Simulated scan of single mutants.
Amino acid sequence: MSAASDAGAGDIAARLTALGLTPRVQRHAHHLSIEVEVPESLPADSWREALEAVAEADRFGLLANSLNGRTLWAAVRTETPATGEARGSGHQR
């Protein structure tokens, strides 16, 4: 695990907290995940700032459904991928 990945995940979480959101950070085998529930009342400017924050991660996305609302998530790698592909195949460039 690298201090850079811890710092990156911490920075993302801090930026989301500054928007009044409550991020959850979890350590996994090869990455740190950051998840935050996004209220429907979040202003457009705050949405933009939240998206800019998670865009700093290696991967990010939004899960939305009628049962659980909206969850914005990000993943920051804690290890260098063996393939040398730093962003993974699912990340748009």
Rank of each mutant, 00 (worst) to 15 (best):
L32W: 07
G8A: 15
A44Q: 14
R27Y: 11
S46A: 09
L63C: 03
G10Q: 05
R15Q: 10
S66G: 12
V25Y: 05
S46P: 05
G8I: 15
W47S: 03
A13T: 12
D45Y: 05
E52T: 14
D58Q: 02
L21H: 14
L63I: 05
L62N: 07
L32R: 10
A50C: 00
D58S: 04
V25S: 00
N65K: 06
H30R: 12
H31Q: 14
L21W: 08
S41G: 10
E35S: 08
P43V: 01
L19V: 09
H28Y: 03
R15Y: 09
L51I: 07
G61R: 01
D11E: 13
L16E: 12
G61A: 03
R24N: 15
E40S: 08
V36T: 04
A44R: 02
L62P: 00
E35G: 02
R59D: 11
R24A: 07
A53K: 13
A14G: 04
L16F: 03
V36D: 02
V36P: 01
G8P: 08
T17D: 08
A14C: 01
R24G: 11
E40Y: 09
G8M: 15
E49D: 14
V54F: 10
P43S: 00
V54T: 08
V25I: 08
E37W: 05
V38M: 11
V25N: 02
V38D: 11
A9S: 15
A53W: 04
L32Q: 02
V25Q: 01
L32D: 00
A7W: 11
A50E: 12
G20H: 01
